[in-house]
Design a protein around this nucleic acid. Structure first.
Lengths: 320, 320
DNA sequence: CTGTTAGCGCATTCAC
DNA sequence: GTGAATGCGCTAACAG
């Protein structure tokens, strides 16, 4: 195993200079640069990331810390997609990703993360407005938030775009199957809906949901029972929308003829069911947050939520 | 930051002893053990995983190396689920996961992985029977295979169980939408199907697919055109089965009345569409492989593929 | 711009 | 069973 010392010796410079050249940080003359470079690849030198991180006093892993009450994490596609995306980014930096679930009350867990010397950066997900108060100082320059006030989907705009499309195609009695009230991320779509129907002078028709298919079935039945003339149902999750479609089909209601249906997140479910949805760059969001956390910068940014029109609302789009 | 030295001093022992106690490897008297332990948590000592790995000369990350021609990895739920599962296992070991995609011809990539000093273990996925020949020696005690001859789903048994169920419920003209011929993992289901229909004296009806929904639609139409009396369609992926369902519905064929349909993998798609499928412990498989790779043992093991009966084949199961 | 000097925190030889 | 020494490979101060 050839080490930096070997490269330095062969290049006729000191280890420090070799380090500066190879790690790219620190001054070095063009001459030194060239000699170190050529010595390095003459020797087939491969840097030792662990030694480097150790010397720098930095950690080697990015922890994706998901706050959630249920065990739903394992099955939540959003989480696993994010984890995979971060794992791919991490690879290029010689790092790795660890996934940890935090209880709702996560003060001590955050403290532990802050004290863990192997942690290079922390990506927080599932947190609410109380996070800043809880975040240990030691995590300040090396953490980023996904969702909430960090890197997030502009779900308000996404829902708004879907609503505008429905309105433009003649729907006037639009119901929404919302998320649970206690989930912070569920408020934005609801607000967007409220604003839209108020502006357009449409009736308000909302039912609480929980992102599941089963709940979507129930919600659809309730909506049609309460407001039989409903001509569109907007669900804030694809799974819920699938449940809606299923219930409508069982009731003999035609989609999109009688009722248009939309989902949210553009999961494989949506494409398979020809469900209109809103597509979100989950991978890009996660990668962006990881990058920000590693850089030490703030990660406040909204990513576009784009409508993906499919058959469930008379859309013209193909499967894709 | 309190280090091992501090603990040793407070416990009145040498750093070496403290190390032996805390790392659990090496002899230590009960007395020393106790004193070190109490000193450690009196001081709130937290080990420094990076320093430890560095001293041991081991890496800090598990690389999930997926071999695949297309870019489908990012969107493949199987991969992201596996990544998330491994990331969760890694966390408990103070490690992290990196995700890397390898081209079909991956000799050099494997060599690079073997030379990377930050790599603790490698998890190979998407490889075929030529893998053993390609695997660098340096990777021998620290790698495991997912799929192929490693930790895999017993898909033959899974397909067999689905076929038996269909047969037991009266289906006698069962068609299969298979996977692409060039995908190694697609052969097992096909063989299981061939064996089953031969044994049961049923007609052979297979159509090649590619795991996509779009292809499922095409396949369903082709099947009904070629063999109009088909009474069951077995697809080797949920997405494909969804396409089948969709096409059948468009053709006015009733499910499960006229034709029963089954998928494979029990993805969220299946639950949402009330599709009978076979459920696989992807997370457990990935975790098992990770564990095996870290231990240095071989990881040859088949995990059960269990039928999940739902409405698409007259099943009684609830949504779940 | 460069070399010298010190570690980073821990695990591991070896004597004892 | 224990301790003293040594080194993992690299980076970060400093002085030049």
């Amino acid at each position: 195993m050839t080490a930096l010392t070997d490269v330095a010796r062969r290049a006729g410079v000191s280890p420090a200079t070799a380090s500066r050249v190879l790690s790219g940080s620190g001054p070095a003359s063009a001459d030194a640069r060239a000699r170190v470079r050529s010595a390095a690849d003459a020797l087939g030198y491969r840097t030792h990331p662990v030694a480097r991180m150790f010397a720098r006093g930095r950690g080697t892993r990015i922890v994706l810390a998901i706050r959630d009450a249920n065990r739903s994490i394992l099955s939540d596609p959003f989480v696993s997609r994010a984890a995979a995306a971060v794992a791919e980014v991490a690879d290029t930096a010689g790092l790795g990703v660890a996934l940890r679930r935090l209880p709702l009350d996560c003060e001590t867990d955050l403290a532990e993360l802050a004290a863990d010397r192997s942690v290079a950066a922390v990506l927080l997900a599932g947190h609410d407005h109380r996070l800043p108060a809880r975040l240990p100082r030691a995590l300040h320059g090396r953490s980023a938030t996904i969702g909430a006030a960090g890197a997030d989907v502009d779900s308000g705009a996404g829902i708004g775009a879907l609503l505008r499309h429905l309105h433009a195609t003649g729907r006037r009695r639009i119901a929404m199957v919302a998320g649970p009230r206690w989930v912070a991320a569920a408020r934005t779509p609801l607000d967007a809906y409220a604003t839209f129907v108020a502006d357009a002078g449409l009736p308000v028709r909302t039912v609480a949901g929980d992102f599941t298919t089963a709940r979507g079935r129930v919600a659809a039945r309730r909506i049609l029972r309460t407001w039989p003339d409903t001509d569109a149902i907007v669900a804030v999750s694809d799974a819920t929308a699938l449940g809606v479609l299923d219930a409508l089909s069982a009731l003999g209601v035609r989609v999109p003829g009688d009722v248009a249906v939309t989902g949210f997140d553009d999961s494989p479910l949506a494409a398979a069911a020809r469900l209109t949805s809103a597509t979100h760059p989950v991978e890009r969001i996660a990668a962006y947050a990881a990058d920000a956390a590693l850089r030490g910068g703030e990660a406040r940014r909204l990513f576009p939520s784009r409508p993906k029109l499919r058959a469930s609302c008379g859309g013209t789009d193909s499967t894709a």
